[in-house]
Design a protein around this nucleic acid. Structure first.
Lengths: 159, 159
DNA sequence: CTGTATTTGTTAATCACTATAACAAATACA
DNA sequence: TGTATTTGTTATAGTGATTAACAAATACAG
């Protein structure tokens, strides 16, 4: 995850501003602007939490488990838009660190309820602080009312 | 690129709205909203142009070449935020279709100036129409002044 | 002028991620 | 009771992008 050579990718962002390159249609597309901001946010977030393989996806999973203890893996997969195998592997990751445990569901012994361990709760607290900071950094050029405006417009699109 | 089985990925989007899942901190993050919209836009765009391997990245490259004929591969890589190997392969793709050609630069015979062929120009025109439609579809729930507002706020973040 | 260093582009090897397919166990239902 | 569906896992594969290594051309230092 550390890319520090000549062609480092973490910071590799399209360059709209400088030099003589005209972005043509891309510069007129809302989707392209969204992509640029997404890359920037992903970069901030990754830098904030990248300890031994913690990625935005993996954090999202831990957060969902923390807020909704007992969800099954299929429910988690659907909520986050992942395949069931990907979900299974993500839970393996957190279980291997002792942050999460699978408890067999009494009423349906095919499925597990996923829960945070005490360790997991502590880790999640620490991660949340850093994630918040990264998200604040992303919007640091906007005032509070502008952030609300932006969030509102984005929500109108995907809701 | 066709995923039509049970676990289809093209449409796989996190589900904020329905069911009993609480997204916790994620629901409060601007970066997460941006990600959702980005996924949606990427899905629309991919559906609009996905003929025989044309991806958003590859379209972006063709557009940049069309608007800025004669750029070198290194300049294209920097502008789009790609590595030079990735850029080289993308140009291979378009060159193989006869849409782009490499012309040796007279003053520096290490580098090529990249140019559209007549075929490439025609193809680009057709793609531009579909790309515009996909971008319009993404923002169809917003009025013109709201789109401007959104674009302005996003630009403030990455500029 | 000569030799080293840098730059451009390509190729090869690798890595990370995700998906699909196939499977066992449990449950639902006809 | 027997078939079909669902849950989760494993195995396989495919994709994309990256790093490293390289050849050719150019820049520059001594």
């Amino acid at each position: 995850m550390t890319n520090l050579s000549e062609d480092s990718a973490v910071l590799r962002l399209p360059r709209l501003a400088d030099e003589e390159v005209d972005f043509g249609l891309l510069a007129e597309m809302t989707g392209f602007s969204v992509k640029l901001v997404w890359i920037l946010g992903y970069t901030y977030l990754t830098r904030a939490i990248d300890d031994a393989g913690i990625t935005p996806q993996r954090f999202s999973m831990l957060e969902l488990i923390g807020v909704n203890p007992g969800l099954t893996q299929t429910q988690l997969a659907r909520a986050l838009g992942l395949s069931r195998p990907a979900t299974s592997l993500t839970i393996d990751f957190w279980e291997g660190r002792g942050h999460v445990e699978r408890r067999i569901a009494a009423q349906d012994r095919r499925s597990f309820g996923i829960h945070l361990t005490a360790q997991g709760k502590t880790a999640l607290e620490g991660l949340r602080v850093r994630v918040r900071e990264a998200d604040d950094a992303l919007t640091r050029k906007l005032g509070p009312e502008e952030i609300d405006q932006l969030r509102g417009l984005l929500a109108r699109i995907y809701e």
